[in-house]
Write a protein that binds this DNA or RNA. Sequence first.
DNA 1: TTCATAATAAGAACTATTCCTATTATAGAA
DNA 2: TTCTATAATAGGAATAGTTCTTATTATGAA
Lengths: 138, 138
Amino acid sequence: MLERQPRRNTAQKRMILRSIEQLGCHPTAVQIYTAVREVLPRTSLSTVYRNLGILVDQGKIKAVKGAGSEIHYDHNTGAHNHIECTVCGRVCDVHVNPVNIDTLNPETVSNYVVLEVRINILGICPECAEQLEKEKLQ
Amino acid sequence: MLERQPRRNTAQKRMILRSIEQLGCHPTAVQIYTAVREVLPRTSLSTVYRNLGILVDQGKIKAVKGAGSEIHYDHNTGAHNHIECTVCGRVCDVHVNPVNIDTLNPETVSNYVVLEVRINILGICPECAEQLEKEKLQ
DNA sequence: TTCATAATAAGAACTATTCCTATTATAGAA
DNA sequence: TTCTATAATAGGAATAGTTCTTATTATGAA
């Protein structure tokens, strides 16, 4: 959490952050790795993972877990919610009314100290819904 | 999803389901494995995983993903929400008002076909909060 | 320009889960 | 009850995603 080490500004770190911003819809480590390697072809997957960890620690990106086993990375660090396509697995931002933590009754939340309320919507994205419709007609 | 094969009623399968019910707070596969082995000491982890998959397919239990990397298993198959302790990792049921899918505006959910809305609360359970308080005083 | 060391590439190690296969034991038939 | 086909098992190998290790490279302060 606390930041003390000097951090060098490397080409890989810059490209990793830029890729997350440009890819949109919360890419996975491998998707970021693939994008970064188009510009810096010798970049290793471990460098991607290490920098993703640093960027999360610095609060510059957020790690998002979906229904699948991969971690997705999000450059929007504000409070917001996610929608995930159960067919293609993509994770995107979605704007439903957030739950205000202060309105939660301590007893209904089992006397926990509430830190965060996450709303995750599962559904089928328009592209996958269209594709499924086509397949059904055949 | 659809069930056609005959299913044998084995001691392992019965103990796995009973362990999930008795352990409470959504145990992981290894926690279930440990509990089952106290009664059936030769049970293997692959048997636990295979039966968990069958029980999920049959709709008898639900798989729940938390902030950690392990999958948790829940014998409450109705619609409800979860609260997770960020210190000890335990996942439990919690009763906050569920979001009614029909009230979601198609545009706000990016024109997805919405299947499910999951609310996950992250916090610190009373036991861990107390422990942290003790450590602070030392 | 030099130099200490942060960051890197490459791949080994790790963790949770799934898959494979010879063996065991369930449940329907005799 | 005994027999038998095969579903389910134990044990361990394989896999996927992530983290760790180490020799090498390159950043940035002096």
